[in-house]
Amino acid sequence: MRLKLAATAALALSVLPVAASADGEVNIYSYRQAYLLEPVLEAFTEETGIKTNVVFAKNGLAERLQREGRNSPADVVMTVDISRIDELVDRDLTAAVDNDVLTQNIPANLRHPEGKWFGITVRGRMLYTSIDRLEEGDLTTYEELADPKWKGRICTRSGKHPYNVALISSMIAHHGEAEAEQWLTGLKNNLARKPQGGDRDQIKAISEGVCDIAIGNSYYYGKMLADDNQRAAAEKVRIVFPNAEDRGTHINISGVALTKSAPNKENGIKLLEYLSQEHAQVIYAEVNTEYPVNPEVEPSGVVASWGELHADTLPLHEIAAHAAQAVRMVDRVDFDN
């Protein structure tokens, strides 16, 4: 008897109420840490009265969404790069949103043609060079990273990280697979150490004297400059906008999509609209030092001071299309070892 009672209690206890899909809520699956979303989401709630609920995870959200099917509570998915969101489209999990506000605020190359995803911010994959050990103009393109003269002087994170995978994909798109592989091999031969850590760690490595050149997303540099503990390291490097003179710098997006199964469709669309509008775009620009997608909104003062971003116009879905090829290439040239 007591056993049964305990069993019932355990079962009852284990089902806590799930976030309800009542009016006035929107549910978000996020690949980005929840506390980083807070400023924007709080502002959204303040303006619209719609409450936001978030689950953050770096893996497995797509599986969860797919398996939950039409009953999934998720309305909106937020990702930090193009390949994750493209994966959702491939699996037919996102809804086509035809909305004037969104099409007006977001340039056509930064959203899906049928509205199955939208870019919210843009980040450039920048190069950083040591102010002490390199001259301005010594390095101006991604292609030059493979030049043997940089042997033992370049730092980067894992070649498998989505940011690097996207960069390699763009090289495949522009130069073809064979040439891109040659380039990647050259780059690998120039590495100062085994790929490791995050983008910030590479900038720190320059300040520590481990290497002279690093690859990293633009906002990390901006955030380091804003952080008292990291500013000193960031001030040891100069930011380089690669390929500014030819095809433009490789960019990626942080994106959002409405799920096909969204129970709070209207609220979800309201959130998408809000994210593309001035207020949210300014928060992203100022707090996260990212590039706004909305042409009406200027980058933050710090970001603008680095110079103008001349972005590669290669459509983003083409980059996503080469992702698997890029990952295999990373394996073939043994990049991460």
Binding site: V18, A19, A34, N53, V54, N59, G60, R64, P73
Partner: peptide, 10 residues
């Protein structure tokens, strides 16, 4: 835990 947890649940 990361993959399975409910909304706003840490």
């Amino acid at each position: 835990t990361l993959i399975l947890r409910p909304f706003n649940f840490e």
